[in-house]
Design a protein around this nucleic acid. Structure first.
Lengths: 227, 227
DNA sequence: CGGCAAATTTGCGCGGCCCGCAAATTGAGG
DNA sequence: CCTCAATTTGCGGGCCGCGCAAATTTGCCG
């Protein structure tokens, strides 16, 4: 099987190298289904793809497809879902003494930094379909929600805060996700097509500049108030 | 038919009083379907409710149900969806000279401020089901997304910003929505049950305190750059 | 290697959903 | 009353999601 430029790791722990043939096959099947679903939907049109087609393209039965995904929409967004999880783990793996904003920037760019020119056409068509097709909206929102919660969890681990700031990781993660989303849309509609990475970098830096004043490097819960 | 404590206005403009029997009937049917779906799902269990049941409870045919909603999940979340829209319009209707944070607080409380003890059991059961049932997750995320974009649009209208801050309304709306969501969850899991309004107020005020430093009351585009 | 237990895949079948279509019904306006 | 447009309704069909049980594959131990 040819190497694809998408995720290799499953949803689980990031460090697991070897987990037996069973696990590796399951991961491979999941990825094959996700890639097949995405590819078929892109060049055939979403509503002209049956679950049966995706299963066939991945070399499994239609029944097995539904052992992995609850719908074809879920399969199409599976790659994005896994990426959302990797962003969080990437943030956790940044050096602990790195400033939070730099770490967030690095974690995000680890997923979006080189996806730009490498895949080109197909990547862009995929993003366009996933964000622009009404039938996929629910699933795409799940991807965004996962990005948010994954980021929030990692932020909470990095910067342990006073009890009055329990809400902070979620709010910051929501802001970062919103900025990332805005960057993606700006890139999609850029009339002279441009590179994605700088757009995201600018977007996140702008957010960071605006919020830096709120975030002193030391964990100082100013409005300390029990929840 | 008895007065229900939910929305009366449709999705459309807020001021329209009279629009002919046709329009009023459509609005009534939509609301009847939404309420019936919610009520049936609450006390019978989501998977024990067929589209047919909802339609019957609302006094229309099953086929008509699908003229209004694309799925029973959509019907169940329709009330929340309409509320999301009303929050944005409420923000637009606040006095123009009111500080932004006060206006946001007022707009949010106009929807969540009195919903607490008025409906009691049913309201809480509904929130619990909508936020806790996996099958409803996609639809609920659409409600959140609508809250976000509705707020963002209103914020953009109120505080006209320099071109360097085009992202600001969306980020602020995302932060507000995240804080609101956190408040709802805290309220849901409060062991001695408590009133909802104060929880939301505290949550939004905490967010405002943290962000106030970013938002000087005067629109001062720091990166002064025209057109 | 041989063989057993657990996990996974697969075919089958059913109930339900979603939607296009055309006929019937209902509101709007002369 | 009569006409037109909007809405509702029944019908039919394709597809989906899933429970079930048989068949296959994998892990493991002697």
């Amino acid at each position: 099987m040819a190497e694809t430029p998408f995720s290799v790791q499953p949803v689980g722990a990031p460090g697991e190298q070897h987990a037996g043939l069973r696990e590796r096959k399951k991961v491979a099947t999941r990825k094959a289904l996700g890639v097949a679903a995405m590819r078929l939907a892109i060049d055939r049109g979403l509503e002209n793809v049956l679950v049966e087609d995706i299963a066939e393209a991945a070399g499994v039965s239609a029944r097995t497809f539904n052992n992995y995904f609850g719908s074809k929409y879920e399969a199409i967004c599976a790659l994005g879902f896994d990426r959302a999880i990797r962003i969080g783990t990437a943030l956790l793996e940044r050096p602990a003494d790195e400033p939070l904003w730099d770490a967030i920037m690095a974690a995000v760019m680890s997923e979006y930094g080189s996806a730009d020119r490498a895949l080109g056409e197909e990547w862009m068509a995929g993003i366009r379909m996933v964000t622009g097709t009404p039938a996929l909206r629910g699933e795409y929102l799940k991807v965004q929600a996962m990005t948010q919660s994954s980021l929030a969890d990692a932020i909470a681990v990095r910067a342990q805060l006073g009890p009055g700031a329990a809400m902070f990781p979620r709010v910051l993660a929501a802001a970062v996700t919103a900025a990332l989303q805005a960057a993606l849309e700006a890139w999609l509609h850029a009339d002279p097509p441009t590179a994605l990475a700088p757009v995201i970098r600018r977007s996140l830096r702008q957010l960071a500049d605006g919020m830096m004043q709120v975030l002193p490097p030391a964990p100082a819960p100013q409005a300390g108030d029990s929840g």
